[in-house]
Design a protein around this nucleic acid. Sequence first.
DNA 1: TATTGTTATACTCTATAACTATA
DNA 2: TATAGTTATAGAGTATAACAATA
Lengths: 147, 147
Amino acid sequence: MEEIDDDRLDLGDLSELLGFQLRLAQAAMHRDFVEAMGDLDFKQRPLATLMLIGSNPGVSQIALANTLGTDRATMMMMVDKLQDRGLLIRTRSTADRRRQALHLTPAGTKAIRDARRRIQTHEKKFIDLFTPAELKKLREFLQRISA
Amino acid sequence: MEEIDDDRLDLGDLSELLGFQLRLAQAAMHRDFVEAMGDLDFKQRPLATLMLIGSNPGVSQIALANTLGTDRATMMMMVDKLQDRGLLIRTRSTADRRRQALHLTPAGTKAIRDARRRIQTHEKKFIDLFTPAELKKLREFLQRISA
DNA sequence: TATTGTTATACTCTATAACTATA
DNA sequence: TATAGTTATAGAGTATAACAATA
């Protein structure tokens, strides 16, 4: 029986692409994020949505969609699910009655607090890979790519 | 009529999370990747699959799945589509007759060549944001996160 | 006329489970 | 027994189009 080593594929020029390296790093952090969340049923986007409502009380669905780079209908479903879980409430905006003003419920606030605790442990795992000076540089580099 | 500025949401603690910063950077490069590909119908994963076959002729589907962090069934469908487009061929491995040995067709080789040209322009856009020393550091930092 | 929310629908991606052939 | 491939199926996430209410 001939041995075939699956884990030693030659990545070729793929390994030198910045986009691919970035994707690998993001995948690694995402895997650990999922593991850190464990029983807490939160994916990155819905949690980010909830946190944005926390720091922007009364925010509209369209504003969330624009900030997170998705569309109205997609955000609609995400907000639906979070509402079904009792984590937020919709009220009509008084300033613009087309808009929903989103607010966290106490359960929503608690959910964020719980999630944040796990995220801190998760983040620390990666932050500890760098010196403070390196970390500052890394954040600045990533910001440069995003801008 | 009251003005509400959608693009000025307070990101709160979200903005300080390394995972979020990484995600934003990845999203930015992904958006530009899609734009760079244009009419060439290639998403990141299928193209990576094709490139891996290019640098590992005769590779099996399971090896590709493991390397790209997915499962057999998902890789199966991806390979199916690439085969339907005439970009690769399956032949049974002689060493282990359970395995498919995947090879690029001439069309597949050409497709990679075309895609690579576009990727170079796309990559340059981001690489040019950094000095050579910075870029070296960035790659090393990302590698540290992936490992 | 344009925008926000809403609904219905469809499409893609991915995963799960069960089967087959080979080892 | 375990592994590679295959198939069918289901679920999640996302996007498109159309409509109602409001601006």
